[in-house]
Every structure is written in C-alpha cells, then in structure tokens.
Amino acid sequence: MRVIFMGTPEFSVPVLEVLVAAGHDIAAVYCQPPRPAGRGKKDRPTPVHAKALELGLQVRHPASLKSPEEQAAFAALNADVAVVVAYGLILPQAILDAPKHGCLNIHASLLPRWRGAAPIHRAIMAGDGETGICIMQMEAGLDTGPVLLRRATPIGAQDTTALLHDRLSEMGAGLIVEALARLDALTAEVQPEEGVSYAHKIDKAEAAIDWTAPAEAVDRKIRGLSPFPGAYVELDGQRIKLLASCLVDGAGDPGEVLDDRLTVACGTGAVRLLRLQRAGKAAQDADIFLRGMALPKGTRL
C-alpha cells in the first residue's frame, strides 16, 4: 500500500522499520520538527526523523497541519492510508479524510481504557493487570475511533514504563502490518461507552514519593514513572530518582530505611529500591549506588 507515516519518538521507530520491511511504499514521513537538545542546544532531529533519513525516505515536519497549503500537500501524496503512532499533533478533519482508507492510529492501551497522552504510565500506576495495543480508525475525538484490531499483554510485577514501552512498540509494529494486510476484511468495532478512562499527561509534580502510601502504590509509582520523569525523594537537599523497585516484607516509620539492602517502609508494607540515580549521575543498581552514597539503616527518605 502507499502509506504516509506519522510519528515522532523512539516508540514509533520499529513501526516505520517494519512497514518498510513489509514492502509498503512510504510516500512521506511526518514528524515533529527538530528541537534544541544537548549541551550546545543545537537542533536535533527526532528519532523518527533520523531513522527516515537513514532509510532514504522523504521527511516533512510542519509545525502545524491547519493551513490549507499543508493540507493540500498532504492530500497530493495520494496515499492509501496514513499510519499514526505518537505523532504529537492533532490531525484536522481534512487530514483524516485525505487518504483512501483514512488514518489508522496505533494506541498503547486496550481502548476505551486509557485514552490520551500517557497510557503506559497510567496503566502501571493504576495497578492494571494487563494492557495492549489497539489499531484504531481515527476520528476527530481523542482516541474515540472504532477499533480494527487489539492485542493484550500482561503487566508483570517488575515491569517499568521503559520495559512495557519497548514491548508495546514491537507489538504495535506487528499488529499494524497485520491490519494493513487484512484491511478490506476487518470490521471496525465501536468503542463501548462503559470503561472509558483518560491517561492525562504526566505532571512532574506527581513524581514525589509519599511514603505514607501503601507499598503497592509506591512500587507502582516508581515503576510507572521510570525512566521519565522518574519518581524521586529529597535527601539532604539532593534529589534521588527511584527507577526500579519490588514489594518486600517489612514495617517501620514511613520512609525509614530498614536494612542495608535499601528496604524502605511505607504506610503499610515496604519496598526494596533496586535502581537509583543521583542528580547529574548515571542510573545505578542499588548495590553500586550504595558504594557512592551510604543510606544506612534508620535513614529517613
């Protein structure tokens, strides 16, 4: 098929790669514009932009798709379908209508649960037992369109957003290839009105750990916010990010370090911190972290 690909972050890259490998004709790749990054604050192409250039594909990165000129340029590509995954711009109706088969979105949740910007984070933080990928026919509403295909995956007790992100990205790549191969035979399933929830964008203010919460909630927050923005604690004026944890037995005052293995008491129960990061330092496993920063038994985080 003649495909317009629309995506921006690392999550979208495997999808672009598999569409090319499957033999689809990529008419153009749309992504967010390069933005300043790194110490020199030089414009840096997005992961999709960089991969598209590597593959020799045409790249477009308009700041908006609202102008008649941009919409006409999009329509002139005469695409069979647009594949959209974490693109980052709202698509006007003229864009949604331009391809022969419209625009298909790869969404990282089991719709209608977790519509919106941060479905992977929210699923872990809420304690969901599973999540998945939906291939959705896009319409004007926020992730409200009918679903063509869906596939579930369990959320494990050690899954972080980083781990689940990579797994769902690969799942989405496989599922969109299947959807395109069977497109004429698929029946779109209207999303039910019951069970709708919204995965609001993560606010950095959410990332501070409240040790008075139950251990299950603390553990889910640590894993759900890893690696970004990273749940954190403040100790002696220094911020420490907590990037991996597990539930363990233990009791004490909330925030109290209970042993030399970084077991920390919560409102009920305890968590063991497995991976941490000091400001300006690389992330480290707990045993290596403790060599550079002692957190003896009785320390209050």
Score class of each variant (00 low, 15 high):
residue 70 E to F: 03
residue 226 S to W: 11
residue 27 A to L: 04
residue 205 A to N: 10
residue 142 L to M: 14
residue 15 V to D: 00
residue 234 E to Q: 13
residue 31 C to G: 04
residue 99 P to Q: 06
residue 120 I to D: 08
residue 69 E to N: 07
residue 198 Y to A: 01
residue 6 M to C: 08
residue 231 A to D: 08
residue 271 V to M: 10
residue 67 S to M: 04
residue 71 Q to P: 13
residue 90 I to K: 08
residue 42 K to R: 15
residue 74 F to T: 10
residue 109 S to K: 05
residue 228 F to A: 15
residue 130 E to Y: 10
residue 233 V to M: 05
residue 1 M to K: 02
residue 186 L to V: 07
residue 240 I to R: 00
residue 217 A to M: 12
residue 282 A to G: 15
residue 278 R to G: 02
residue 295 L to W: 12
residue 106 I to D: 01
residue 279 A to L: 09
residue 255 G to A: 02
residue 218 V to Q: 06
residue 297 K to M: 11
residue 45 P to S: 06
residue 80 D to Y: 01
residue 83 V to E: 00
residue 206 E to T: 12
residue 37 A to K: 15
residue 111 L to I: 05
residue 213 A to H: 14
residue 238 Q to D: 11
residue 76 A to N: 10
residue 157 A to F: 07
residue 55 L to E: 03
residue 295 L to E: 03
residue 37 A to M: 14
residue 153 T to L: 14
residue 36 P to D: 05
residue 19 L to A: 03
residue 34 P to F: 05
residue 157 A to H: 11
residue 18 V to T: 14
residue 156 G to R: 13
residue 68 P to D: 08
residue 168 L to R: 01
residue 202 I to L: 09
residue 6 M to K: 02
residue 28 A to T: 07
residue 171 M to V: 12
residue 171 M to W: 06
residue 186 L to C: 07
residue 265 A to H: 06
residue 116 G to E: 09
residue 233 V to L: 09
residue 116 G to R: 08
residue 25 D to H: 13
residue 90 I to L: 12
residue 155 I to E: 02
residue 265 A to Y: 07
residue 199 A to R: 06
residue 137 Q to V: 12
residue 42 K to G: 11
residue 117 A to P: 12
residue 39 R to Q: 04
residue 110 L to W: 06
residue 59 V to R: 03
residue 166 D to T: 11
residue 203 D to F: 12
residue 146 P to Y: 00
residue 66 K to V: 12
